[in-house]
Design a protein around this nucleic acid. Structure first.
Lengths: 344, 344
DNA sequence: GGAGCGTATGCATACGTTGTCATCAGGTCA
DNA sequence: TGACCTGATGACAACGTATGCATACGCTCC
């Protein structure tokens, strides 16, 4: 296949070996159709003999395109980890790579943005509600295409792509109403995030239309532990298992897992004593142990849309795209009467 | 903070604005200690006025260092997703970034390696047992530092860092023995992977020393669904719930989750009817719903070691490092008699 | 006070590619 | 046969930074 492949091989050396000019070697790899078949063959032969691979760094310097997309995501959270692989896969399909930036605390975002600027990425995917508005503005001012992923509040300064949080939460509420749940409470992750607020709004508005008042209960985070911890508070707040509402709508799947496990540990049965819904549609929601009724975010479609925004937008139009999710019905919510009737 | 930050600003323009040479601007950002305080101040002032950020692409071209580490990881699998964030965080600490390459099928690795070569990354982290040997050899021949992560078989061509699979499995076996389990079976993920084989070897050897013969049962994958599906086969194989061994050692945590849920669905109680151990130490293993007895891989330490190999190795020494894990005792294995005695 | 030395800076070049421009071969058409 | 076009190729100048080399400056020490 290739020689020792040890030393740095440049297009100049390949050109010499192939008996053509350096420019022809370059063209062979960047725009092959401009090179005669015979030359192309010679170049490829010489290239593989020498173990030549075009230098993307030099290419990027000259062409001002890196074929790299930067992704800024939180270090923790099942949801984000779930997305990263999908992003990477889709980028690979279109011949790009993904430079990953994670942050544990929102305060780290600023330094991350610095790195991003240095690397002259073609675009930036800001994936989190936890990125503060200032940082978004910072990125928007960079002059590179940016799209906020599931960050509905950023729509004034940058493009954004989100699942339809309001409609999704409403759809979940509809499901609860159809299955005859009379009292519902909403367990939020972090009221400072747009996703949280929109989901609560979608749920509570729809429920109110049906005469159900839905209180908001903050869990203090979207993580499993927050959910596990809030379970006890819930019981206390509602005055024991009997006082619980018919259903708990939880702002995120991971949080819901925690709540379910927490309730279970306290002797509360899901869905017999209380129904639980999530939001995200993580793979784990389908695991038999949880089998969570949740709103599935169509990850593939969301990301495809976001990447489309990155590559197409002339960095001037700020569009706000919303993608509908769909309800996955699991065993975490009880059905009205007979088992086969719950279909909407 | 900065001006309009729209146009491309180069060190030359900053130099002009600051009244120094381009070289001084460059030095201000790459080796500040070589620049006088007064000049540095002038440069910084001019830089932030113009919104200048050093161009990492150009820097890389000249310096032959990209400060980018490539990571090749499978697209699916809770374990890998769990590691990605940690890798990224540690790289950020040392001022590097992570170029992420995911692959869904082993056949995709070849093209990934091509991309890697183009980008002249400083090092490569090969994170998977699923990467075939040929690809490893390919990467090893690239002349860039590479380290195989949890791929014990690659030790002849490249450095590698792994948890001590044999000792870890043996430690789990010890725990089972101490808690008076008499019959044990091992559920493997994929016998073609080194991790799987080493874990089985560690477990079965230790068990044999205590007169226990441990059969190997292949699940066909390390994923949740494989585990869930194998549960029924297990029951059939052992002739129903009563025929089950005292304990099942599962090759990986995610697989174990599937087995536990599968068994539960079939009316088998863990740990009353059968104890279950995992391997990996995923965060989810600590979730109350599973509370899995497992071998925790010290992710932070493993990655620190791997990255150390990348940056320090002069790409000649191929060292094989093994890091010990530790047993996490959960509720998925029953304890002998009193609850407080199970400590090793 | 001059030799010697260390520090700060400027100049010029190189990193490996892309893209523009000019050139040249070969074929068509009048 | 000469003018014209098309397609392939080569020469050359960027892209924005790092760095070796030379120089100028400010010291100390004899």
């Amino acid at each position: 296949m290739r020689g020792k492949g040890n030393k740095r091989v440049t297009s100049v050396e390949v050109a010499a070996a192939a008996g053509v000019s350096q420019a022809t070697v370059a063209r062979t790899f960047s725009s092959p159709h401009k090179v005669a078949d015979t030359s192309r063959a010679k170049v490829h032969e010489a290239a593989s003999a020498l173990g030549y691979v075009p230098n993307a760094i030099a290419r990027s310097l000259k062409s001002q395109r890196t074929n790299i997309v930067g992704a800024v995501v939180p270090a923790r959270g099942e949801y984000w980890q779930h997305l990263i692989a999908e992003i990477s896969q889709q980028l690979a399909e279109q011949g790009s790579q993904m430079l990953l930036f994670t942050f544990a605390k929102p305060s780290e975002v600023a330094s991350v943005v610095q790195s991003l600027r240095q690397y002259r990425v073609d675009g930036v995917l800001l994936a989190s509600s936890f990125i503060d508005h200032d940082s978004i503005v910072d990125v928007a001012g960079l002059g590179i295409p940016a799209v906020a992923f599931n960050h509905p509040e950023a729509l004034d300064v940058t493009a954004s792509v989100s699942v339809d949080n309001v409609a999704g939460a409403a759809a979940l509420a509809d499901h609860l109403i159809e299955t005859d749940h009379q009292t519902v409470a909403f367990v939020g992750g972090d009221p400072d995030t747009g996703s949280d607020r929109l989901r609560y709004r979608g749920a509570s508005n729809r429920l109110r239309e049906h005469g159900i008042v839905c209180p908001y209960i903050p869990a203090g985070g979207f993580d499993y532990d927050s959910g596990y911890a809030i379970a006890e508070s819930l019981l206390r707040h509602f005055g024991g298992g009997d006082g619980l509402p018919d259903a708990l709508m939880i702002a995120g799947d991971e949080l819901a897992f925690g709540v379910m496990d927490g309730l279970s540990k306290l002797g509360v049965s899901v869905p017999n004593d209380v129904s639980v819904t999530g939001f995200d549609g993580l793979p784990q929601a389908s695991w038999a142990g949880f089998d969570l009724t949740t709103l599935v975010q169509p990850a593939e479609e969301l990301i495809r849309e976001a990447l489309g925004q990155l590559t197409s937008t002339p960095s001037t139009i700020e569009s706000h795209t919303t993608v509908p999710g769909f309800v996955r019905v699991g065993q975490s919510t009880r059905r009205q009467a007979c088992a086969e009737e719950g279909k909407a």
